[in-house]
Design a binder for these strands. Sequence first.
RNA 1: GUGGCUGUAGCUCAACAGGUUAGAGCUCUGGACUGUGGCUCCAGCGGUUGGGGGUUCGAGUCCCCUCAGCCACCCCA
Length: 424
Amino acid sequence: MLQTPRGTADVLPDEQAYWSYVTAHFKSICESYGYGEIRTPVFEDTRLFQRTVGEGTDIVEKEMYTFADRGGDSLTLRPEGTAPVVRAYLEHGMHRLSQPVKLSYIASIFRYDRPQAGRLRQHHQFGVEALGEESAAIDAEIIGLLLHLYRSVGLTEVSLQLNSIGDAACRPQYIEELASYYRSHVKALCDNCQTRLERNPLRLLDCKEDSCQPFIGDAPHTMENLCGDCDAHFGVLKNSLKAMGISYTLNHTLVRGLDYYTRTVFEVWPQTVGRQSALGGGGRYDGLARHIGKRDVPGIGFGTGIERIILNLQRQGVVPNEQQPFSVFVATLGERAATYGTGLVNDLRQRGVRALIAYRPRSLKAQLRQAGNHHADFAVIIGDDELAEGQVLLRNLGASTQENVAESDLMQTLERLRDAGRTG
RNA sequence: GUGGCUGUAGCUCAACAGGUUAGAGCUCUGGACUGUGGCUCCAGCGGUUGGGGGUUCGAGUCCCCUCAGCCACCCCA
C-alpha cells in the first residue's frame, strides 16, 4: 500500500472543521489589525534562504528540500515564511507604499526533520510581517496579535518568552564576551557545546545538557549587554506590552535558530507538562532585507504552526463550534419521482440551500437513515402519490413531524425555513 | 542525524506458553418494518495481522531487514 510520504499528513473532512475554525479566526484578526494577505510561491531560489536564514543554521545545513529543476536552477521548498515575504516586498517596490507595510500569510512550510507529533516535514503556518517600521511599538502589536489569536481560538495557558539579542552594533561584542567566558570553561562543556562555541556561540545558551546548565546561568546575558539604542528599544517594547496587559517571561536563553534576527525575539509555549514545543515564534530582523536587495528595511514578524495549534486545541478538549448548515434530503420512490428529485436538488442548490439525494433507488427507510447520517434538517419525500397530487411530503427530521406541501410552494417554504434557522 | 517503544478490519481493541478457518464492539449495508430515520434484534460487507525474508511440521506470536507512527535527544512551528 502506498501511503503519504513520511512526515506528511492528509487532512480529512472531519478534521477540516479545526482548520477552517482557526483559519477564520486568523483571517478576521489580521483584518482588524490591518494586515493584508500575501501569497508567495512554495519554492524559491535556494540562495534566498542561504543568505537570510544563514549558512550555519540547522535549517540550511540539513533541513531544506533543495532540488535542481529541469533547467538546472537550484530551488528550495520554503523552509520558513519570512524571507519570501521580504523578497516580495523588495521585488514589488513596496518601500514606495505608506510604511509600515503589514502582511499576513498562510503557507505550507517544508523541513526535512525526524517526524513526531506536532513535527512534520510539511506543515502549515500562519504568519504576519510588518516591514518598514523600527519602533518597538509595532513589535508589541505583532506579539499582541499572536496572543490574540491563541486566546480567540480558545488556547488558554500559553506563556510568552521574550528576549532581546541586540543588533549589529552590540551583538558582535557580546558574542565575543560570551565566547571568551565559555572558552574559560571549555573542558567542562558537552561535545555539542564545544562545537557551538566555534560555530555559533549564541546557541550555547540553548543547550539542554544538565552539565552545561550552570554555565548558562552564569554566562553574560544579551539583555544586560545591549547598546543604548537596543536597550531603549527593548524598554519601549516592555512598556508597550505592559500597557497592553500582556505578561511575559524574560528568557535569556531564547536565541532562535535563524541568523537574521536582531533585537526582539520571542516564542509562545503551550502550558503542557514536559517538553516545550513552541506554538509560535518570531522576532525583529532589521538586517534581513539587505541580504536580498540593496536596501535596509526594518521588519518584524512571527510564524505559528497550524498543526500545533490544532493539536493543542484537541489536547485541551476545545471543539470548534461549527454550526451545520441548514440542509434538505430529497427522498424519492419510483423512477418518475427520482427524475423529479434530480431537478429539485438542483434548484435548491442554485438557491443556496444545501441539498442531498440518494443516487440510486434505495428503500425509503435507507434514504431517511442516510438523511439522518448527514444531519439533514428536513426530508422532502416524493412518491408517485405525491406527484399525482402536485404535492410533496415535507418531514421535519428534528421534530419527527411532517406535512403535505404543494409542489409550487416548496421552494419558498424551504427558503423560509432555512432563513428562520439561521436567525434563530 | 542518535537512542528507545509500538504496528491485528475504516475506528477502538481481543487472540493461553508459536497450534485448526484471526474474533468482538462501533461504523456502513440489508432485513425484521414491501412508503418513514434515531432505539432494539438478526444478518452481511470488511484483514496479504504495515511490507519482505528467515527459523519451524506449523508464525499475528520467535529472529533479521525494511516502512510508518510515537517518546526522548536535537531542532523548532
